[in-house]
Design a protein around this nucleic acid. Structure first.
Length: 559
DNA sequence: GAAGGGTTGCACCT
DNA sequence: AGGTGCAACCCTTC
């Protein structure tokens, strides 16, 4: 476009997509450019403990540090700015004399509104904005254009047809130049931030510490037991893909929600930690495990890397396909296979992209209107892991400690909070997950909460997960409970899922007296689940009849 | 309108 | 380990 004498100076704006590989926007920033400045804009107002848990923030900060190192290896570097991106990005374009802004497409409502505002402001300062869809396998605009009446499918089979009509998944983009253009006029980070001092909230330019963001210290051997970043993510991806038989035979519903983080050797065989009651995370960054091993639950634990874009879904997809092709047709298939998991992610991204008010019940056209309660006592007991059901509470403690839960454990606690037992609004549970999960992703999170609460996608409300039976099926001895709920570590296996049934002397001997050391069950599951099913039946009938089940419904107490 | 299928329920049966 | 009854949902296809 530009004349021959025109020189291009670019800003590449990282948000998600925290990677160098398969980053078409970063490659474009470098094309015909004399200067490229990669930036990440931290909004300290948004990044606070009430919105984002410490585990996810640490994962983000580790990812930023890794990204900076990768960029430095190419002669560039990541400038981490503080402030409102809507003000910071346009100001930087103008102050640094940049005429091109590149970034990845982000389809979340908050992000797309923000990006639209930045796009307008960039135009006013004479910069072109170039965006690329690389966070998903397919371009959501294109997928949505294939949907009948512009409405995303609510069934997976229908989704597969639509995806199939969009052709092959695009190959990953080529890497950026081994030697990237330097900063504008060769200026340092400190000099660059000084030029926009009126719009940044701090003159700091590096990756912050947790403390700087108002979080308590999180020791290395606590929390989510894997480091964030592209380097770690690609390493994990390839080690997982090297377990070829495991990959080919993978069936998600067959994986266990009670498996502890275990050392996975280079041979691909999972080995149990020497002592399952030791915090397995201690081994994660230590040398004792060795450079050729890492920790994993019964699944890949790649979701946080996909959430932040440390690992490209397209890279994942194509490298996975190569492994499956080697298996010569003898492998599992969607929806249960690993490929199926990547496609579930697309399914939810499309639903979120094409559905107004996707994140809530009211005004959401795909969401069943159900008169959930906002019972604060029940919600707090669930959130804080003191429902009196050890399996449920252990899961909630794992969520708190690690920011992680197996998919089926998420099902168990989500069903319990909503349609299974407590009849509390799914939005309340989704908010907790949104804060605490390392891999929290609104499209997947809100979609799954609608699924589990029988608000959309899944409607067999009479299939209720048992807060006693479900965990027991996988872990008869309660090893998972003993790890995450140490108050019950000495309870005999016979009673560990229902400690209130243990005789008084057994409780005393185990050091866990019900009502003193651990609460009695918050509900009688047999009674509560029956009542929930009846309420769902009434709400479904009202939906069929076209009557409004929410007449007189109070969204929250006091409203 | 009926039939078939739906990533991942439970309890009880063989 | 695999099959069935439970009471019966929805969406898609025919």
């Amino acid at each position: 476009m530009g004349g021959e004498d025109k020189t291009t100076r670019s800003i590449h704006w990282f948000r998600k997509g925290l990677r160098v590989h398969d980053n078409p926007a970063l490659v474009d920033a470098c094309a015909d450019a004399t200067a490229v400045q990669p930036i990440f804009v931290l909004d300290p107002w948004f990044l606070t403990p009430s919105r984002v848990g410490a585990n996810r923030v640490r994962f983000l900060l580790q990812s930023l540090t890794d990204l900076d190192a990768s960029l430095r290896a190419r002669g560039s570097s990541l400038l981490v700015l503080r402030g409102d991106p809507k003000a910071v990005v346009p100001a930087a374009l103008r102050a640094w004399g940049c005429d091109r802004l590149t970034h990845e497409v982000d389809t979340e409502p908050y992000a797309s509104a923000r990006d639209a505002a930045v796009r307008d402001a960039a135009k006013r300062v004479g910069a072109e904005v170039k965006t690329f869809a690389s966070h998903t396998l397919y371009d959501m605009e294109r997928l949505l254009s294939k949907c009948p009446k512009g409405a995303p499918p609510t069934s997976y089979a229908s989704f597969l047809k639509i995806a199939g009509s969009c052709g092959a998944v695009a190959k990953p983009a080529p890497p950026p130049p081994a030697s990237m253009p330097g900063s504008p006029d060769g200026k340092s980070h400190v000099e660059l931030v000084a030029m926009i001092e009126d719009v940044v909230s701090s003159a700091e330019v590096g990756v912050p510490t947790l403390e700087e963001l108002g979080y308590p210290e999180l020791p290395d051997d606590e929390g989510f037991p894997a480091r964030g970043g592209e380097t770690e993510g690609l390493d994990r991806l390839r080690r997982m893909l090297s377990r070829k038989t495991w990959i080919a035979e993978f069936q998600k519903p067959m994986t266990s929600p009670t498996s502890l983080w275990a050392v996975v050797g280079a041979d691909g065989k999972t080995q149990k930690p020497a002592n399952p009651f030791e915090a397995a995370s201690k081994a994660s960054k230590s040398k004792t495990v060795g450079a050729e091993a890492f920790l994993a639950p019964s699944t890949t634990a790649l979701s946080p890397y996909l959430k932040f874009g440390c690992v490209s879904p397209r890279t994942f997809y194509h490298e996975l396909k190569d492994v499956l092709n080697d298996a010569k047709g003898k492998h599992s298939a969607p929806p249960v296979s690993l490929e199926g998991q990547l496609l579930w992610r697309e399914f939810y991204y499309l639903a979120a992209f094409g559905t107004p008010n996707y994140h809530k019940m009211e005004g959401n056209p795909i969401c069943r209107q159900i008169p959930w309660t906002w019972d604060e006592e029940r919600l707090a007991a669930w959130e804080e892991g003191r429902t009196g059901f050890p399996w449920i509470d252990a899961c909630m403690h794992q969520l708190r400690q690690e920011g992680w839960l197996h998919h089926l454990a998420r099902h168990a606690v989500a069903c319990f909070l909503t349609r299974g037992d407590l009849f509390v609004h799914w939005e309340a549970g989704a908010k907790v997950f949104d804060r605490d999960l390392v891999d929290a992703d609104p499209a997947l999170n809100y979609g799954n909460w609608m699924w589990l609460s029988c608000s959309c996608f899944f409607y067999q409300y009479f299939r209720v997960y048992g807060p006693v039976s479900f965990g027991k099926k996988y872990d008869k001895d309660g090893t998972f409970i003993r790890k995450y709920l140490p108050v019950l570590k000495d309870m005999p296996a016979k009673y560990i899922y229902e400690p209130w049934t243990a005789p008084a002397d057994v409780q005393k001997k185990a050091g866990c007296v019900i009502g003193v050391d651990y609460p009695p069950p918050i509900v009688d599951h047999a009674v509560a689940s029956k009542e929930c099913i009846e309420k769902l039946a009434v709400a479904y009938k009202a939906h069929k009849d076209g009557t409004n089940p929410l007449v007189g419904y109070k969204r929250k107490a006091g409203e």
